[in-house]
Design a protein around this nucleic acid. Sequence first.
DNA 1: TTTTGCAGTTGACAACTGTAGACTCTCATG
DNA 2: CATGAGAGTCTACAGTTGTCAACTGCAAAA
Lengths: 125, 125
Amino acid sequence: MSNDLACKITASELEVMKLLWHEEDALPVTEIREKLQESKGWEPATIKTLVSRLVTKGAVRQEKRNVFYYSPLISEQEYGRWATQDLVSRLYNGRARDLVAALVHSDGLTQEDLDELRQMFKVED
Amino acid sequence: MSNDLACKITASELEVMKLLWHEEDALPVTEIREKLQESKGWEPATIKTLVSRLVTKGAVRQEKRNVFYYSPLISEQEYGRWATQDLVSRLYNGRARDLVAALVHSDGLTQEDLDELRQMFKVED
DNA sequence: TTTTGCAGTTGACAACTGTAGACTCTCATG
DNA sequence: CATGAGAGTCTACAGTTGTCAACTGCAAAA
């Protein structure tokens, strides 16, 4: 809703973002390639395309050192909020509580989850 | 995750589903058209396409009376669960509680929401 | 019965996605 | 300095999505 452009991250691209989010520093493609090649079985070309598209979309920064280094321009939290809000507005007419309610009433949460959430709500006052 | 085929409902198609979900009975295209034409500004052709695609996908039943009547084959809850699970698995590595946590820690919930949720968690034991 | 409007079906077409090959240029290594 | 690996860029191509027009028949109105 807010950050329109940067947020149209597709499923495949998201995998790249997740990798970048979990690293401290910017990564050279080499490393991105290595990790995703193994975990996703993608060809190097595919990975290069995804990274490029993310750069074009403004979701990733390309920083010139010897070789380009890549780091996220939008944070995981930011994207998470956006994606969640998107779901909420598309499906629950903007009523976020309905999303939680649906989650609670489905089998999506373990007892442990519920406990932890209850805890969270206690503190969150 | 579960109902793979029927669940690949796109954003536009979802608008049709939402309309159908909020009706008791099956609707003839006439009515679907009227309502969406007004609320979405879509051409009749567009609406017909969306309905057809939903039928093809098995998300909507086409029932022959004088003219075809349409009704949802998957429920709003069912789809909601699927979409939520999808988000959770794509973004939060399957940890549903993280989604809720993100929601709670963002500004996505009003005080009222929080109250109601707290209530829900109390009962939900 | 003829006409006409609209439901239903097909086709269309551009943009976006998933996936990947090919080409070029540069840097490290021999 | 020459060479080769691989980073970066371009191109490609099929499938999906958002939008819609054109055609075809049926059923109601005239």
